[in-house]
């Protein structure tokens, strides 16, 4: 009987494994084909054999690396992502500290408002932002798109950080303040080093949010500050059949995201459940 049960359980486990693997293949096919197409010649891609791997080449990558418009867009994405991350994590950390270390009237309302702000559709803001940015000269500037990205990253970072901050032991701060440090000094010199793990997670997610963002970049940037998602979307259109280059460029954009995703595994659930990852 016991043996029978064990065998049965083994068979079920095996069947589940096979089934999961099949689903996984379907789920990963679009990703794999993007990675593979970057190394295939367009003529092979257009032959319609999804698994043909003849004439592997790095030609598409060479073209993409020599595509000055795309490379500039990649650089813009990195710059905007880093600036927006630094801005939203520093400002967001301060706000999260204020919310998690002080009791004050309207504290809950304030915290929840930030969460609702994170969930607003970009299209609801982008028309007004376009008009406002145009009138103050922020359209097609790094400052403009950085600020726009911070509008969703700041609320996001605040909510990501609050649970991290709560776990930081207060006694170190109390000791520092008894020793005569001001709140501010305590925050910078005592609290921030203790809260580093949370800040790293928040930085990574804030960067990915900015890296993936499409609609603000589409409307608020122009030739000079165009980001990579916009540049890559411009690669395919009409009858231009350069899927190889499109795939190579896409792969370059996916690499940082996938590296972070794997590194951040432990924190993914929280990262997305406060409304992350969407562009």
């Amino acid at each position: 009987m016991t043996l029978h049960l064990t065998t049965r359980r083994r068979i079920i486990t095996f069947a589940v494994g096979v089934f999961a693997f099949a689903i996984l293949l379907v789920q990963l096919y679009p990703i794999i084909i993007t990675l593979v197409n970057g190394f295939r010649r367009d003529i092979i891609i257009l032959s319609g054999q999804p698994f043909a791997l003849e004439q592997i080449t790095t030609r598409s990558y060479e073209i993409v690396f020599n595509n000055r418009q795309f490379m500039r867009a990649m650089r813009n994405s990195v710059v905007v992502g880093m600036l927006s991350t630094v801005l939203s994590v520093s400002v967001g950390a301060m706000a999260a500290y204020g919310i998690s270390r002080f009791k004050f009237m309207g504290r809950n309302t304030l915290a929840y408002s930030f969460l609702v702000f994170r969930m607003l559709p970009q299209i609801s803001l982008v028309v007004a932002l376009h008009l406002l940015f145009r009138s103050v000269g922020l359209r097609d500037t790094v400052a403009g798109i950085t600020l726009a990205h911070s509008s969703f990253n700041i609320p996001y970072v605040i909510w990501l950080l609050i649970p991290f901050f709560v776990t930081v032991d207060r006694s170190f701060e109390e000791a520092a303040m008894i020793d005569g440090c001001s709140r501010w000094t305590t925050f910078i010199q005592v609290f921030i080093p203790l809260a580093r793990p949370g800040l790293v997670v928040a930085s990574v997610f804030a960067f990915i949010n900015s890296w993936n963002e499409f609609l603000y970049a589409l409307i608020l940037t122009g030739v000079r500050t165009q980001t990579a998602p916009i540049a890559v979307s411009g690669m395919v259109g009409g009858e231009v059949l350069t899927w190889g280059q499109m795939s190579a460029a896409s792969t370059l954009m996916l690499v940082p995201v996938f590296i972070f995703t794997i590194k951040m595994q432990r924190h993914l659930i929280r990262g997305i459940s406060v409304g992350g990852v969407k562009g």
């Binding site: 689903i23 996984l24 789920q27 990963l28 096919y29 679009p30 990703i31 084909i33 993007t34 197409n37 891609i45 257009l46 032959s47 319609g48 999804p50 990915i208 890296w211 993936n212 499409f214 998602p229 890559v232 979307s233 395919v236 899927w243 499109m246 896409s250 954009m253 996916l254 995201v257 996938f258 995703t261 993914l268 997305i272 990852v277 969407k278 562009g279």
Partner: peptide, 27 residues
């Protein structure tokens, strides 16, 4: 691995699907 599609850039996902849906050569 199951989670990778969630982190596939939306714009890249759209283009890959557009590719897979093309007549004659799309999977």
């Amino acid at each position: 691995l199951l989670l990778l599609p969630v982190f596939f850039l939306p714009v890249v996902s759209g283009m890959t699907w557009r590719f897979m849906l093309q007549p004659r050569y799309g999977a």
